[in-house]
Design a protein around this nucleic acid. Structure first.
Lengths: 208, 208, 208, 208
DNA sequence: CATGAATGAGGATTCATTCAT
DNA sequence: CATGAATGAATCCTCATTCAT
């Protein structure tokens, strides 16, 4: 129903998201998109990995773009929801902020492909129609973080000489960019990462 | 710099790097690469913008990849050199670090296209031969920053419970990612950005 | 009628031609073929309209082409038979011709889809094997009309300076082409059409 | 400038219609479109016939559809203009009508491919955007003919009991449909065809 | 320096058809 | 009877690149 083309609002089978095959294919696609980049990944790459012919993918998805959309939508909706819960369950702005940061690293750990995708393809996404939801979602996430930062400034938890909008951007980029170098199977654990990040964020690099 | 690929042992005319047309074309290419992404930019896009036919580009450059290489090499060589100077001229690790951060924002301001390119196309670049220089250069930059961070830890300027490798990555990503949202013509000036960044980096977000 | 193609020596279930579902499907197919053109109509279009999956169509018909064939054969056999009756029951060539024309408009009214199909897809049909019957049938129809026209010339009913073969073609095309613009549900009735056509055919456009 | 897609209003080279190669290719395309039908003709068919690769066609035309458009536009514009001249130069409605009919057969003779295309692909065309000009042009042609027919009725040259709109359609279809069976290289000449057609149109089939 | 014509290797997508369940 | 997953071939189109002029 979100199809905006005038031609064929014909839905593909198995759109109920219940198809196991569908989920498998999406996972493969997410991994490849994340690794090679969306436009460097061909539908044949995906199909090959799935052991089928490229044309057969179109039994499940109406286009390559649709796959990307579905992956991102799933990730972003979940993220937003979780962020809401975290903030709602936090007693103080500081607790809220820490929760947001910690969960971000968890998301990077657990959904590396989707995070990578989001991190790397924003430029592309902003030019695609049907992807307004990405920007919309980003705006909501930003609103959550900035609300926390401003609340903390009001309560005196956070410093007054730092602009929330800038802090948000610096923190966001520092945190999410780690998806590019973090290795889920390496020795550096994601919670260690979170703690180091929080240490730096809380009291800075300077000693004493 | 000899061509290492097996493909094109072909000479290009007027490659004295002094050609004004060449510089113009590179600038156009850099801007387009940065805006649309390298693989989303066609040689025709570049040629169109330059007012010539796509085939004519090959009078100046032997391939699209060559253009990318030249843009990046120019940027990275300059950056590395500047970083060296900054560290060499700094009295303390803290002064060095601040200088590195400040200059990074200056570079973002002055060479937005090249920075964007570097920021967005690393994934692609790592798979291309002929682009080892990028990784090599990145390694050297990293070495400079980490040396500063470690020195600061030794001198007691910087805290001991933060791992230099991680601090480097967090700071690097926070700083360079700003190229994605920084507007050189906007009201927010790049030196303001640098100061806010340093404020946060030095003593953190928490009040008191 | 045995299948003459080398392709599919395959039996289809419930082909007794009596199946109600079959008739339904054929009607849908005829309508779509007529509206969008045979090659612009996909088996999925037909299946969609019928509320089943495209693969399921193959329970009823061995191919898309088979559907076309069946539709056309039904129409053309009926038409030829009716033309025979009309001529046989006519007292004079003129009466025969008028009957042929009138019935043609009736057929257009009642079997618009099949007539459209025949009218629009002849070019395609002539290249398909298994569709010789169309040309064969066309030849027989032509023979009937031309016999009437020649007989009329002999009896002095029709003018001598008009070549029957040409008159047949002009009349045929004028009559059958009306399927493209005739609207069965509009205010212009098919018998009015027939009378106007006959008026023009009989004594021409010039006054007095 | 007529491109309605939002993507690339980039014009192809040689749009000046002056390219000889372009004209050659259009002629080949017209012939194939007319013979096999537009959608049955592949770009490779055209390229093969031209002795180039299919992709090379896109150096000259931005799409298969564009080729069709150009062919039709050229034909229809010329036709309309000629029709205007004919009517303007005719002393009486009858003379005008005869001129229109005669020229139509000439057009069929000289531009068989374009006429065929127009005759056979109207159904398709009406669904394509960018092809409104076809309907627009058809409306104008119809207006010309009907004006002549009505004028003739007023002057008493033509009968009063025939509706101009219907006469137009019958004549139009009888005339233009002949493109399907007329052979420019055969023994039946196009002017003979015109005379026979006019004979029938003027005073009808009935003797005396 | 630039044009204009062409190459050739893909790339996404469509679609009739098959077949196990 | 119908589903749902898949095939395989074809289709339109893109794009970096070459090269004679």
């Amino acid at each position: 129903m979100t199809e905006s083309t005038t031609k064929k609002p014909r839905k593909r089978p198995g759109n109920g998201a219940g198809s196991a095959r569908r989920a498998e294919l999406l996972e493969i696609a997410a991994r490849l998109f994340a690794t090679r980049g969306y436009s460097q990944t061909t539908v044949r790459d995906i199909a090959d990995e799935a052991g089928i012919l490229s044309g057969s993918l179109y039994h499940h998805f109406s286009s390559k773009e649709t796959m990307l959309e579905e992956i991102l939508r799933g990730f972003m909706d979940g993220l937003l929801e979780r962020f809401h819960e975290i903030v709602a369950g936090a007693a103080t702005p500081r607790e809220a902020l820490d929760g947001l940061v910690r969960y971000s690293f968890t998301a990077i750990h657990e959904q590396q492909a989707a995070v990578s995708l989001y991190q790397n393809e924003i430029a592309l996404l902003s030019r695609l129609p049907d992807f307004d939801f990405v920007e919309e979602n980003s705006r909501r996430v930003e609103a959550i973080w900035i609300a926390v930062l401003e609340e903390g400034r009001r309560t005196g938890d956070f410093r007054e000489d730092l602009q929330p909008a800038l802090v948000y951007r610096f923190v966001r980029d520092a945190v999410w960019s780690s998806v590019r170098w973090y290795n889920p199977d390496g020795t550096m654990r994601h919670d260690t990462l979170a703690e180091q990040c929080l240490l730096l964020l809380h009291t800075g690099l300077l000693a004493g």
